[in-house]
């Protein structure tokens, strides 16, 4: 698949924003971490801005954006529609929760607490829907697995955790050890799930050029595609990344996306570095997970490529 920058940017930033809000609401509402009003508001606003920027960039890949409002009307069957509905539904709950913190300080009443928790639940459902947009496609075996939505959720929460520690590092005398430990765990789970995914998609399964043409008892080779220049199909689905680039980027995913952030947070846990180190860990993780998302699209091979001569996907 052609890795469109707008969709890479959208899935990474909105995932991180939803992850940050989820952790913020849970840790704050259940009183697991002492947070000041200022910290909650700033973290909440950063989360909402990330989500908003991501959602806006997702409309950039539309060829006819004036009809984008119609995307909310096929909730019954379409995961893309569901994602849009849940993302918009998330906002009133998240804003009411932050309004409660703004009016009442860090100690909010039951109503605003409920708003925060409902917002967190909707945030996780939205990340799941984003993953299912890709996971439900039978045409792309690299996506059509339960690991796809799982990876989206784990990486969203891990990035959210890093942002949460970063936000807490600005609060004087905050106890960041608990959140840091949680974030290291989330990063480790995300790394493991991604490793399982790469192992899983390495094995070739699914349709071949033989089942695509119906000739299952003989070798089938492409003689001619019937067109001299590229078509929409070759431009959209024909992208074939360089093997060496893929290998290099996979190393980068694990080194920058998971390894270095875990190492830097371990320094914080061991008392060797201040909580400000979480900022560097966040920057590194964002770079690594953008590389992961680029690979997620670039490595996906659509079955229509079989008709253009690929023997398998």
């Amino acid at each position: 698949m052609h890795p469109a920058f707008s969709v890479i940017f959208f899935t990474v930033t909105s995932g991180a924003g939803f992850g940050l809000f989820t952790l913020l609401a849970i840790l704050h509402v259940f009183g697991l971490v002492d947070m000041t009003q200022e910290t909650v508001l700033w973290a909440g606003i950063i989360g909402l801005v990330l989500v908003a920027v991501g959602l806006m960039s997702s409309t950039f890949h539309l060829a006819n954006p004036k009809n984008a409002w119609r995307a909310f009307f096929r909730f019954k069957t379409s995961w893309l529609s569901r994602e849009g509905v849940f993302a918009v539904l998330f906002y009133p709950f998240a804003l009411l929760y932050l309004l409660g913190v703004f009016l009442q300080g860090a100690e909010i009443n039951g109503f605003f607490k409920a708003m925060g928790i409902l917002g967190a639940i909707l945030a996780v459902i939205t990340i799941f829907s984003t993953g299912m947009i890709y996971g439900c496609l039978k045409t792309i075996r690299q996506w059509n697995t339960a690991l796809t939505p799982a990876n989206y959720i784990f990486m969203g929460l891990a990035l959210g955790g890093l942002l949460m520690v970063s936000a807490l590092s600005y609060q004087d005398g905050a106890d960041v050890m608990g959140v840091t430990g949680l974030t290291v765990t989330l990063l480790a789970i995300a790394a493991l799930a991604k490793a399982v995914y790469y192992f899983w998609v390495a094995k070739v399964t699914g349709p071949t050029i033989n089942t695509a043409t119906g000739f299952t008892r003989a070798a089938v080779r492409l003689l001619d595609t019937g067109h001299t220049a590229g078509t929409f199909l070759t431009e959209e689905f024909g992208y074939e990344p360089d093997h060496s680039v893929v290998t290099a980027l996979k190393t980068l995913v694990f080194a920058l996306g998971f390894g270095l952030p875990i190492l830097l947070l371990a320094l914080v846990l061991a008392g060797q570095a201040g909580p400000g180190m979480a900022l560097w860990a966040t920057v590194s993780a964002f770079l690594g997970i953008i590389a992961e998302r680029w690979l997620f699209f670039a490595e996906a091979r659509h079955v229509v490529n079989l008709y253009h001569g690929a023997q398998h996907t």
Binding site: L62, K66, S78, I140, F232, H302, V304
Partner: peptide, 13 residues
């Protein structure tokens, strides 16, 4: 709205 999603879902191009 030209989101291309249906073309992704179609195996036959």
């Amino acid at each position: 709205m030209g989101c291309n999603y249906c073309s992704w879902a179609c195996p036959y191009g």
